[in-house]
Amino acid sequence: MLDRIAVADAVRELRPDFAVLAMTAEGLANGPGDAASAAWLERAAERADAADPHVEAWREAYRAFGAKPNRTRPSVDALMRRAVPSINRVVDAYNAISVEYALPIGGEDSGAYRGPARLVRATGDEPFDVVASGEPAVEHPEPGEVVWRDDDGVTCRRWNWRQCVRTRLTEDTKNALFLLERLDPYPLDRLHAAAGDLEARLREISPDVRITTRLLAW
């Protein structure tokens, strides 16, 4: 999967400084949140720095494609503004790393993907599956919106704002894709450090997990 992940030229033109470190984790043994994953979230909250310049860089990126970051916040901005609830051990792990490192991180069930992940400017007719009022529903991105997608539709809207239902990580997820996204002035060595800490926590959850990474940068 990693060798087929792509970032469209239109996105690179919008933010030439964008880089994403993609990580696959195969053979996960996930489970409900526990004392260890709650401690990760608590420690991350103590270390969070909402004034980190990386957060503002993402707000600027949202404005560049027409989104209003005070209304639909970049994922890391939203996480830093609230107490992050425990979801399951793997989600808790990457949410904690996201807050601690001021870094947007997407976590997806790669078994639910249809074709490779790619970051594109939306046409506006792509399907995005959600739950509305307790019922399955389909929405569509705005034309020009930056989205992650696969062959079946949008997997995450507004770059890293909200993921679809289909690819969410659950306690039954065995194989996952993580997308760690950075903009200037975020150092690449800090990006790699975040990936290393995420890998360590995934191995704590699942000692036999098989992890591979790929950096896409220009």
Rank of each mutant, 00 (worst) to 15 (best):
V91F: 00
A193L: 09
A57K: 04
P141L: 11
A122T: 02
T123I: 14
G66I: 02
E13C: 07
V165Y: 08
R166Q: 11
V165R: 09
V99C: 01
A38M: 09
G31F: 06
D208L: 14
V20H: 05
R157E: 04
R121M: 10
G134F: 07
A195M: 06
A64W: 06
D152E: 12
G153M: 09
V11H: 04
D109K: 00
R118K: 07
D150E: 07
D152A: 15
T72L: 14
N95E: 14
E100D: 13
L215W: 13
R12K: 06
L119I: 12
A35F: 05
L79S: 03
W148M: 13
S206E: 03
P16H: 09
L177F: 03
D109L: 04
D109M: 07
R201C: 14
P187Y: 13
N175H: 10
G27T: 05
A112L: 11
A194R: 11
T212R: 15
P74E: 07
D52N: 10
E56G: 06
R71K: 04
R210K: 15
L180R: 06
L216A: 15
R47E: 10
V146T: 01
R59E: 07
N30V: 02
W218A: 15
P143H: 11
A132R: 15
P136K: 06
A6V: 02
S86T: 14
S86E: 01
P185W: 14
D184Y: 00
D34T: 01
E56V: 08
T72Y: 13
Y62A: 11
D49T: 03
R121V: 02
R114T: 15
W148I: 10
P127S: 02
T167R: 06
D52H: 14
E199H: 10
Y101G: 00
E26M: 05
A195Q: 04
W161P: 00
H192L: 13
R201M: 14
W218I: 12
E42H: 09
L119A: 05
E171P: 00
S98H: 02
V76E: 04
E135L: 14
P116K: 03
V165K: 08
A176H: 01
T173Q: 03
V11I: 15
A195H: 08
D77A: 14
